[in-house]
Design a protein around this nucleic acid. Sequence first.
DNA 1: GGCTATTAAATTGGCGCCAATTATGTTGCA
DNA 2: TGCAACATAATTGGCGCCAATTTAATAGCC
Lengths: 217, 217
Amino acid sequence: MMTTVKRKPKSKHALAGEIAEAIKLGQFRSGEWLRQIDIEQKFAATRFDVRTALDELVVRKAIEHVPNRGYRVAEIDRETLRHIRSVRIVIETSAATAIVSGMTPATLSTLRGLAEEFGVAVREGTRADQSRVNAEFHEVMYHLSGNPVLEELIWNLRDRGRGSNVTVWASHESLLCSDRDHHAMLEAIEKRDIARLSQLIAAHILKDAPEREPGGL
Amino acid sequence: MMTTVKRKPKSKHALAGEIAEAIKLGQFRSGEWLRQIDIEQKFAATRFDVRTALDELVVRKAIEHVPNRGYRVAEIDRETLRHIRSVRIVIETSAATAIVSGMTPATLSTLRGLAEEFGVAVREGTRADQSRVNAEFHEVMYHLSGNPVLEELIWNLRDRGRGSNVTVWASHESLLCSDRDHHAMLEAIEKRDIARLSQLIAAHILKDAPEREPGGL
DNA sequence: GGCTATTAAATTGGCGCCAATTATGTTGCA
DNA sequence: TGCAACATAATTGGCGCCAATTTAATAGCC
């Protein structure tokens, strides 16, 4: 049981991050109501901080607000999900060029380490571990683009697409696939093969939440 | 019912929109402190609503918050501006294909009307008029993409880039240039010339806030 | 018995007070 | 005169109370 998380710094923004993280990790189901009392107990925060954090998450599109009803985890329909993925492909593949040109031996070895670490996490780590290492890998990679705005956008869109694919991601198949993708990306970066990297990124995104629909994008 | 100041909406979100609009229109200068008392008088809102709205704008990156100092209009440095424009080009040009394929005679004539209207606004309208018509033109155009997520993203990035280029935009030269661009875009859409449309969009974005700094970075 | 009106409990959310902090103005001192 | 310490005014921001609204529980009615 992991109720009442211990946190000394009661920053509103930090609390929003905590809640967002919890949602990402699937601790709240899609469409589930987030009662203020529950949240304030679970995260050991005051009522006001909870409301502020929840408001922030509404702006960030992580949850939605219904007047006089409260806040609930946003349900993203298939179509929106497709739109998000479509935009993600455009944005993330656009980073490929900058990633390759920004590549250095140091970051390359960092990436290699993280790719290995992810492989380990897939086999013997918790879901949170996998999520964290995976995020770190992509963070380092996209950081090479040298464009903070681009980076931030990528994370926003990734977060928005979460919720329904967590279960999918739980499949060991998908995890192994992600693992292979990471190594393939590394290889492409190393060989400065921009086209291949773009292709891998696009495929990676599509696999992130697969959908049997004819006609990509 | 509508006085010189704004209306009195009951929604906090609406107030945030009003303030954001005011910032876009240059009623607050870059780096200027937004004193809560001033805001609450200017927009006839309660202290609490002001703070909520301001918090929302912080999340939306329109303003920034300094603890115990207050809120101020975010100053975007040249580099960030460049990054934003870079991402804008990627995203907005990516919409070109969908725009062309989604084009219908009805929307085309709507666009033509708006392009004309913008031309009129440039000559004899207020700055607010110009801004509004211009926004409407691009809104209709990007709406053709059929991707709401993409649309929203475009607006977010546009808003973030505002602040320093309003003065530039005041230049009659730039306005006339925008006017020409609109008509050129129309033509490209009509001819289903995706490449040309992409090119025009990119150029339009670059012209939106040209680097005037000597030896610009 | 099933359905609806009424009442009670639970939850949300608007709003304001006042302590903490920062900015401003003033005085004393070298 | 310039600087620093202090006093005072202005501003921010944390927090809680309670009214408005929704949900449930219950009783009343057909």
